[in-house]
Design a protein around this nucleic acid. Sequence first.
DNA 1: GTAAAAAAGTGCAATGAGTCAACTTAGTGA
DNA 2: TCACTAAGTTGACTCATTGCACTTTTTTAC
Lengths: 189, 189
Amino acid sequence: METPGRRERKKAATRQALADAALKLFLERGYDQVSIRDIAEEADVSTTTLFKHFPGKEALVFDQDQDREALFIAVVRQRREGQSVVDALREHVLDGWLKLADHPQMAEYTDLVNSTPALQTYGERMWTRHTAALSAAIAEDAGVAPDNISCQALARFVLDIPALTRGRPEPRKAVEEIFDLLTHGWRMP
Amino acid sequence: METPGRRERKKAATRQALADAALKLFLERGYDQVSIRDIAEEADVSTTTLFKHFPGKEALVFDQDQDREALFIAVVRQRREGQSVVDALREHVLDGWLKLADHPQMAEYTDLVNSTPALQTYGERMWTRHTAALSAAIAEDAGVAPDNISCQALARFVLDIPALTRGRPEPRKAVEEIFDLLTHGWRMP
DNA sequence: GTAAAAAAGTGCAATGAGTCAACTTAGTGA
DNA sequence: TCACTAAGTTGACTCATTGCACTTTTTTAC
């Protein structure tokens, strides 16, 4: 298992070619104006091959979301002494994914997602999919049942943040305000 | 505009026939095992006609969600003196939609939705779609800008509640706990 | 009361996503 | 080398959804 092996490498190459082709065409013509077949052709594979690498059209756009879930769980488990779960999550959101958001290379990518309803929906789902895992980590940390509703709610609300702050001029401030709500409860602003 | 007119009535009848046919077939065979054509045929109309009444397959299942949005807004605006927005929303959630949940006739319907991923997704979206409107009402009430992030977050979190409490043994208690979180902030349970 | 205008519905063909089954090819490992 | 396995191919297929041209009501205006 040291070397990935030629097979693995070729597989990865094909996958990458597909993702690249897709992103290129989507940016050129717009998501809806590109068909699966266009993408497969651009990457010079058959459409069936494409579907062996990606479960659907939207997945071609969200290709690098492997260890988000593990990261969130680690944040809960390995936080500093005396730091609350909510504060640890706040820190992670601010330091972690918020930085990626204003990479200049990300701009057109972000525009693509924001201008395509199907991708917005799918993107939100990619986050909230981790609700169960994050919730379980929080519950374990608090020493309560894994299906504790407060923990599930907190997890869900935290994972809603990307959707809530998308396209905001001051995402940092927005994130802070949301965490204030989660920490202290609603106060008439 | 007094009488609905024959036209309106016929239109409504067709629509109802479609919704009924769809629900019947879905319950009989399961969502994925029923095609649009099956439904159209059962209701004795063409598939084209079906799509003039419903924007898609999932919409056939969620047919009675007209004034949810208006209701939420009314709850915010016309609450009792001295009652906070959050408490008004809590009351509405507990009194309003929670009661419908345990109608015995609803059981198989609920099962259908819960066992079909496409319908779960669509159902969640039906709620969160009202985020903007509810958020605006809350912001107006609080006298802040309509895109105030705290208001948007509160609206979103409240509308997340159906998704969070779906299939719970004690929905009432769950709703209360979530509102406690929104009122007082997160407390290690 | 009759003639448009508007709406409801139909039929049909097309597009595009996603699936399936049977096959070929190339990498792996003994 | 040889058999095994996973990647890829082909082509046909299902199904949702849309567009277009057409017919049949119902309503509205004259």
